[in-house]
Nucleic acid binder design. Structure first.
Lengths: 190, 190, 190, 190
DNA sequence: CATGAATGAGTCTTCATTCAT
DNA sequence: GATGAATGAAGACTCATTCAT
């Protein structure tokens, strides 16, 4: 028998992401995805019970991927600001290099595709970010305000920066990156 | 266009916005919109040539509305920070009270519905924001960095704040608002 | 506006019946039905929410039609056997002339299309038959056995007779009809 | 065909029959059958070239089984009515105990699955029934009418009786059976 | 203008069948 | 032989759009 091929899920995900960026979450069809993935439409249903499930699975995978990247190489032993900047850069790098994933996830935010379960699962993955910011507050380096608010700044500014970079074609020089980081740090630092 | 018509366009827009929040931009149909607006499907086509046109018109209307709100009561004669905060609060208030519009506009960002023309028209409306920030730089109150970057912080953080407020049900106290403004100001101020 | 056309339901029913006889209940598609009815596929959904609903509605209509025919011209004032034969002939005539309906209803018997509600509704329509046989028992003309059993003979024999007539191409002469009636009567009479 | 294979064919048939009763002839899929039979879908195609062939084979098998049962223990040497009742009871017993087969065969009647060849083969198996009734006519115990008509009564009444028993949950007491037989005999006897 | 029935292209999904293992 | 993943044609159903009233 033919073994279920795990690489195929990857192909499907890649195809879906590419399509979401070019046609929007609303515009993609199972036919498009299968064609882009180089498989038959029916094959999609071997791996995912429905379009909904496919989208949810992709969302979960992106989310996990994103979190995993954020803390790659993070060393809690280092001084706070060093570690913080490391993570900040990780996130930025991830969003730039995986722009498609970032766009997809944002599109999912208000879509009826994402089920409450998936949403719930996603928010549980936010824990490491929370901890990072809590630590900053404990070391009295960050403003003693609601962690959610701090994250808001972290994420919100990054989002717009990446979008702008991508769409306005601005090249993200080292200086520009540092400037942005400084602004972010100024916002958060106590 | 008589007044009667305008009222109907308003109903259509309201209906569409409500539906986008609950079902996503992908999920709305002309049938849904007409039903929610209390008119017949065919009547939609009296006011809009197609679904695309309806969405684009709504997008443009929201965008204009948003800009108009931002500068309501803004007095350039006042000291910079006072005026800046005024605008900042206007934007925040707008996004909170017109959450549906905000969601709709975000959903439109990557959708194939919005034509380049509409996009172009929208970005031209950004001029007042640019001017506001340029003035701040001229008065050496804001960091001498790319205006786009400054806007990024302004908008990005606000976006996330509003989303959070809405979804996590946090009440936005005066203190919380001020804290957020301070963070934003800290990020931008030179 | 275009008025919903009641004749269209009739066309749809006729088309469906014809197709069930030629291709079996299993083999019919909404596309086939619409084509045979001379309308667009989508139009079917103006009149019926789903294929299931269409089949159930058709079943109910056939059932009603069948019962209505059975007692046409039946006069309770006449001697029992005369009235009984009248009904018997009505049923036979109905089944022969509306062979498609008869086949369709038989096909429905074990199909998952028919909902319990429809089934229930159908069996409630059996009341007149029950009464007819009860009367025969009361007048001591029929065997004093379970009414269900009597109906079994009435219906079962007729069913097979009609099928045979139709498929083997036997012509149903007056003699043959009378012979069959006599057999039926012999079975039921006390 | 080894014994092992035959057992598998049996499993397949059993699975198919069970599914036809629960989901109708229209509703069964090769996937369902294979799952219910505890084998892989592909394996079905080792035993049957196609779904059509499977259904036809099953139909033929049921038909043969049915006829075989009918005359089990029948002894032409016995008086006619005794033998006749013996067969009649055999048929009844068969239909009650193999209700699934009976339902399946009825479903097949108007389905496009059954080929003319299968149909032809099936009707050739009716010979013993014909002979039984011919003998009755020759002995002047049965009405001198068309054999087809006689069979019609035999089969038709039995069909309905079995259906009723099954669906209305009536228990078939010995008395009820005898009553029914008497009715049938009354219908046929000269 | 307003209506909503009619249309048919396009969607998701299923399923008989094939084929690599 | 046995398996079940892969295939793609076909089916039920949706929906933007048109048009008769």
């Amino acid at each position: 028998m033919k073994r279920k091929d795990d690489r195929k899920v990857g192909q499907i995900f890649q195809a879906a992401l590419k399509l979401v960026v070019s046609k929007g979450l609303s515009g993609i069809t199972m036919g498009d995805i299968s064609k882009a993935a180089g498989i038959a439409t029916g094959t999609l249903y071997v791996y995912f019970k429905s379009k909904d499930e496919l989208i949810n699975a992709l969302f979960a995978a992106c989310r996990e991927n994103s979190v995993a990247h954020s803390f790659k190489g993070y060393d809690p032993a280092q001084p706070y600001k060093v570690g913080f900047k490391h993570v900040w850069l990780n996130i930025l790098r991830y969003r730039l290099h995986n722009f498609e994933e970032a766009v997809f996830m944002e599109q999912c935010y208000h879509s009826p595709f994402i089920t409450p379960e998936t949403r719930e699962k996603a928010s549980r993955l936010a824990a490491p970010y929370n901890e990072l910011l809590e630590r900053g507050k404990k070391e009295q380096l960050l403003k003693p305000v609601d962690t959610g608010l701090l994250i808001t700044f972290l994420v919100g500014s990054m989002n717009e920066l990446v979008k702008q970079t991508h769409y306005h074609g601005t090249t993200l020089t080292r200086t520009r990156i540092n400037t942005t980081f400084d602004m972010c740090w100024d916002a958060l630092k106590s």
